[in-house]
């Protein structure tokens, strides 16, 4: 078990630590920038500031989902362990970001529209994206064999990604045919810069968190392999 101990004490690479520090500072700076530069919106007042977390989180969640899709394809094609671990990491981070998007959107919606939830196409498809992620992660945690887990979740990841545009389209048709209010999409230029700055800051955060999660997945996989080796050799195993 010497090896396992060494594994857990292994230092994180310098670039990851550096990137994480930069990402946290960037997010903090971008938030402050947003608060300073944007005036209170007429209708929504300062509740508009929620947008600076809500929208970047949504963008990056979508990006994470694209990573899952791409890594799943690479896995099925090349059968590389790295692609599987990347898909796992991106799915978990993406689920957190999607959850954050939904939560903040709901809080803002209650303030601005007076309801926690409306069946708007974007809201509904984000929720569907979230439950697809959750199903994906559930499948992973319920499957022990690493290769089987990798192949199955790659299939589920690809199917989920294929479905996203279809879900969006179907919900949009469903809504327009029912003639219900849609969410306001107008935004003046003074908010756009702050939003973009936050978008970039959150992208850095996404990459940093993904890096950490990927590293953790690597260590976990290595530990699993060592565990299996030890059992095969008939050594004592402490879990």
């Amino acid at each position: 078990m010497q090896e396992l101990k060494a594994l857990s004490e292994e230092r994180a690479p310098k670039w990851l630590i550096g990137l994480t520090a930069i990402a946290f500072m960037a997010v903090a700076g971008a938030q402050v920038f947003g608060f300073i530069t944007s005036p209170a919106a007429e209708q929504y007042q300062h509740s508009q500031k929620i947008m600076y977390v809500h929208v970047p989180a949504a963008w990056n969640a979508f990006l994470a989902f694209i990573v899952v899709f791409w890594a799943s394809l690479v896995y099925l094609w090349k059968r590389s362990e790295g692609a599987d671990l990347l898909a796992e990491s991106a799915a978990e981070v993406g689920a957190v970001f999607t959850g954050l998007t939904l939560l903040l959107g709901s809080i803002w919606g209650k303030w601005a529209w007076g309801v926690w939830w409306t069946w708007d196409p974007r809201l509904t498809s984000t929720a569907v994206l979230f439950i697809i992620f959750v199903g994906y992660l559930a499948l992973r945690s319920f499957t022990e064999d690493p290769e089987r887990r990798a192949t199955w979740s790659a299939g589920v990841g690809i199917f989920g990604a294929l479905n996203v545009p279809i879900v969006y389209m179907s919900v949009r048709w469903w809504r327009t045919l029912h003639q219900v209010q849609s969410s306001p999409e107008t935004m003046s230029a003074e908010y756009v810069t702050a939003l973009r700055v936050n978008g970039i800051a959150f992208l850095l955060l996404l990459v940093a968190v993904l890096g950490w999660r990927y590293r953790a997945a690597r260590i976990q996989r290595r530990a699993e392999a060592l565990h299996e080796e030890a059992i095969l050799e008939g050594r004592q195993v402490h879990v």
Binding site: G135, L139, F142
Partner: peptide, 22 residues
């Protein structure tokens, strides 16, 4: 897949129903 995993009764609807929304 679900039939061959642990917790298959829960897993199938969890995977299937979100996909079936359209």
């Amino acid at each position: 897949m679900a039939s061959r995993s642990r917790a298959r009764e829960v897993l199938l609807p969890l995977l299937l129903f979100p996909m079936l929304i359209p």
